[in-house]
């Protein structure tokens, strides 16, 4: 099993931490994982992306040429990375900010209004990036929810129970929304 995921969006949308969470969950699973971030000047507001590969065997290149999943948190990300998504790949889109004007061809497209979901159901938009991981896990079945949960608990251990709880709820919300 190898799953190659590109996550892309504006700097500040939690692109890198979402990618990292997927990689960490895979490690919890006992798999191999690579995480490669764009490391340019996009601290906030620019485009940020990362390539995450999770696999039960050795991972050669950490750079993705042909992705199984594209998680696009804004419109430029769809334009930029759709060509790298396999013909039968999964495109997960944040429909709160991405307009439907793209041709995904034969790919499976799942749209989720992350920002409004987060605001309405969680009270703030901070965990929007975790909602989409919940959706990703449900749709692809490659990561067990309990492994993601334990990755979240470790990741936010220093931030306290409230933050952990919010992220766990976001994960759950993503899973039930698709």
């Amino acid at each position: 099993m190898t799953q190659k995921i590109i996550i892309s969006g504006f700097g500040g949308q939690g692109v890198l931490s979402a990618g990292l969470l997927i990689a960490e969950s895979a490690v919890e699973e006992g798999w191999n994982a690579t995480f490669f971030p764009s490391y340019g000047a996009e601290m906030r507001g620019g485009t940020a992306n990362c390539h995450v590969i999770i696999s039960d065997s050795e991972i050669a290149s950490p750079i993705i040429k042909s992705a199984d999943t594209l998680i696009a948190l804004n419109s430029p990300s769809v334009d930029k990375f759709l060509p790298f998504l396999k013909e039968n790949g999964l495109l997960l889109v944040n429909s709160s900010v991405v307009s439907g004007n793209f041709d995904a061809g034969t790919r499976k497209v799942v749209e989720l209004p992350l920002d409004s979901l987060a605001l309405e159901k969680l009270g703030n938009s901070k965990s929007a990036n975790v909602i989409i991981i919940g959706a990703f896990a449900k749709l692809t079945n490659v990561l067990k929810p309990e492994k993601i949960k334990s990755a979240i608990e470790k990741k936010f251990a220093s931030k306290g129970g409230k933050i952990i709880d919010m992220n766990l709820r976001a994960l759950e919300l993503g899973a039930v929304s698709v």
């Binding site: 971030p37 991972i59 950490p62 750079i63």
Partner: peptide, 10 residues
């Protein structure tokens, strides 16, 4: 190089 430096792995 930039990839080996920036990439994460176990």
């Amino acid at each position: 190089d930039g990839i080996i430096g920036q990439m994460m792995e176990s």
